[in-house]
Design a protein around this nucleic acid. Structure first.
Length: 339
DNA sequence: AATAATAACAACCGCCCAACC
DNA sequence: GGGTTGGGCGGTTGTTATTAT
């Protein structure tokens, strides 16, 4: 037996709210407060589900809500906090006065995620793609790297394809030089078949396998420049969509390949983000993991934290650290050169 | 000018959990 | 202790506006 539905679905209006409905709800709440959402629509004369009324109130009608564009500061805050707490939108929204979790979530999904992808930064781990690739490559034997390259293509092939095809001529030059020098230590994923070499996907596989072995040849030194170029390409337009919903979820952090195991080659910023600056030495906190409060009590999700600022105000917490020490140069440059 | 594609925003859905009985 | 309920949460879908072709 499932639970009783919160309202009669048949007698309930759905879809966009009209100004008249907004008025009814606002004036009722102004007089009676928000004690019982199940009764509110009935008493306010609305043919709406109580839950729908609550959402409308909390996301739109509530006084002191900010509507409209997010400022640069707000965007940076979201990015910073997301790298620490993951998709806990209510937690992030609690640090942005006037913004709701829905606002933050929508802004992340529609703009920020793409912005980071365009900068060559994985929006899930907040690490540059090249670092991810390098880390992956260092933990695996060459045959596994080849398989992983193929798997990785399924996740962000559009991004990589574009990065790599831009460098294809360089790859080919390098490759021919290597061959000329008799260097045969690279390229585990090489197809000898001509028709495969002509296939764009096969090309990208080949290039990716090379990039993994030589991450420096990826154009990461001038990310924003390359991003600016890519924003006009059709490949990039679909950039974010290459992350399926299952990948953008927290569980992706749990895969050893994408987790930051000990810092490695990441920047200071990305290290502090990915390891969680609330952690003690040798201890890492990933966004999806349970956090601890000042008393060492574990919590998970926003519900347990009525005042989310407690997380961000503790001693060595990211939130109180000088931003210059934290901001990844890539982010800083990007935000300073807004489109 | 018409149509398609994309972005941005609003709303809904289902799950979860604490509070209550 | 177990069942029910209200409310919060994140994910997803639907709608509208804007831009590109």
């Amino acid at each position: 037996m499932g639970r009783i539905p919160c309202c009669e679905k048949d007698n309930v209006k759905r879809g966009q709210w009209t100004p008249e409905e907004d008025n009814k709800l606002s004036s009722y709440i102004a007089r009676h407060g928000t004690r019982n959402w199940r009764l509110i629509p009935k008493n306010a004369g609305l043919q709406r589900c109580g839950k729908s009324c609550r959402l409308r109130w909390t996301n739109y009608l509530q006084p002191d809500l900010k509507h409209g564009q997010f400022s640069d500061t707000e965007e940076q805050t979201i990015v910073k906090l997301h790298s620490v707490v993951g998709n806990r939108w209510s937690l992030i929204a609690a640090q942005l006065p006037g913004r709701t979790d829905n606002d933050v979530k929508n802004h992340w999904n529609t703009k920020l995620k793409k912005k980071l992808s365009g900068m060559g930064i994985d929006p899930v781990t907040h690490k540059p793609f090249s670092h991810l690739m390098a880390e992956i490559a260092t933990t695996l034997a060459p045959p596994q790297v080849a398989h992983l390259a193929e798997a990785a293509l399924g996740c962000f092939k559009d991004e990589m394809l574009h990065l790599l095809t831009k460098k294809r001529i360089d790859f080919q030059l390098q490759q021919s030089n290597l061959v000329a020098q008799g260097n045969n230590t690279t390229v585990p994923y090489v197809s000898s078949k001509q028709d495969e070499k002509d296939d764009p996907v096969e090309k990208s596989k080949l290039n990716l396998s090379r990039a993994i072995q030589e991450p420096d040849i990826l154009p990461m030194n001038n990310l924003w420049e390359s991003t600016s170029m890519r924003t006009t390409s059709t490949n990039f337009e679909g950039g974010c969509s290459v992350f399926p919903a299952s990948v953008s979820g927290y569980h992706q952090y749990g895969t050893s390949s994408f987790a930051n195991e000990g810092g490695g080659s990441g920047s200071r910023w990305s290290q502090s983000m990915c390891t969680g600056s609330t952690s003690t030495a040798g201890e890492q906190v990933r966004p999806h993991e349970k956090l601890k409060d000042e008393n060492g009590e574990e919590f998970q999700g926003g519900k347990e934290i009525k005042n989310a600022s407690s997380i961000f105000n503790t001693d060595c917490v990211l939130w109180d650290m000088p931003s210059d020490d934290l901001i990844n140069p890539i982010y800083r440059e990007a935000f300073n050169n807004k489109e």
